[in-house]
Simulated scan of single mutants.
Amino acid sequence: MAHPLDLHRPPHLAPGAAQVSRARRQGLPEPGNRMNVPKIIRMRHDRGGRAGTAIGEMIYFTGDTHFGDPRVLRIDRRPFSNMAAHDTALIANWNETVSPQDEVWHLGDFAAKRTGLAEDLLSRLKGRKHLIVGNNDPIDTIGAGGWDSVQHYAELMVDGRLLVLCHYPFRTWNQMGKKSINLHGHSHGRLKPMPRQFDVGVDARGLRPVSLVDILPKSPR
């Protein structure tokens, strides 16, 4: 699979034929197009601390749901006897947290490779959903209807904080020296984080999406 940033090279770095072919196979825009360069998406908070694209909307983060993949019961020891119970619980947790008007950024590894599975799940999950592609996201997931956007990398400005989103945790990231925040998945809660780096995968977050307020350490009073 392509490096997570391969599809987002600056336009002056011409992509090779292999990169273009890879992007086409994955159903993503071809690299080298100026529109593919990641842009900072600006969010805002209302006075109640709710983050979103408009007043009253929230923005949530999650990842590594692995719907339909029985390996998570064995490897991650998720507390379910079977995948039907697992998927039902994760869907319920999601929909208890997220409202239809909210934004959800899924940081990769959404669901198992099964025709129609991702699209069915997306139709049952609340919110406007964005995918940051993970190493276990097949073409059926990437190309499923129901995503508002699909990309390997994104930067969001939320309440004056730059958030750098990728499936993989970074050792360094954009504006790290200016207190930007790296949100990631992939490590299933097992990685010791760097300062201002947070795993938003479900294994690290109580099996449900979380907001920036949930993620950031609470300041002492």
Rank of each mutant, 00 (worst) to 15 (best):
I139T: 12
A112R: 01
K178N: 13
H167G: 02
Y168P: 00
Q175E: 10
G185R: 00
I139A: 09
K179N: 09
I181H: 04
M176D: 01
R114T: 11
P169T: 05
N182Y: 01
H167C: 06
F170C: 05
R124S: 15
D109E: 12
D148M: 14
T172Q: 12
L162Q: 08
D148Y: 14
I181K: 00
L122A: 05
L183W: 02
D148N: 06
A144L: 10
D120T: 15
L107N: 05
K113Y: 12
L121R: 09
G116H: 15
Q175V: 08
G127S: 15
A111S: 14
L165P: 01
N135P: 08
E155K: 04
L156R: 00
V150C: 02
Y153N: 00
S123D: 14
G145A: 09
K179C: 07
L131E: 01
H106E: 07
W173C: 04
D159E: 15
I181Y: 03
S180D: 07
W147Y: 11
F110S: 06
N174F: 05
Y153P: 02
A118S: 13
H167W: 04
R124A: 13
P138R: 05
L183Q: 02
S149M: 06
I132E: 00
T115R: 14
V133D: 01
G145K: 14
H152Y: 03
V164K: 00
T172S: 08
E119A: 13
Q175Y: 11
K126A: 12
L162P: 01
T141A: 07
G185K: 01
A154R: 05
I139P: 04
M176N: 12
K178W: 11
H106S: 11
G116S: 14
C166D: 07
L183P: 01
T141G: 07
N136G: 07
D137L: 11
N174S: 08
R161K: 05
I132R: 00
A154I: 06
E155R: 07
C166M: 09
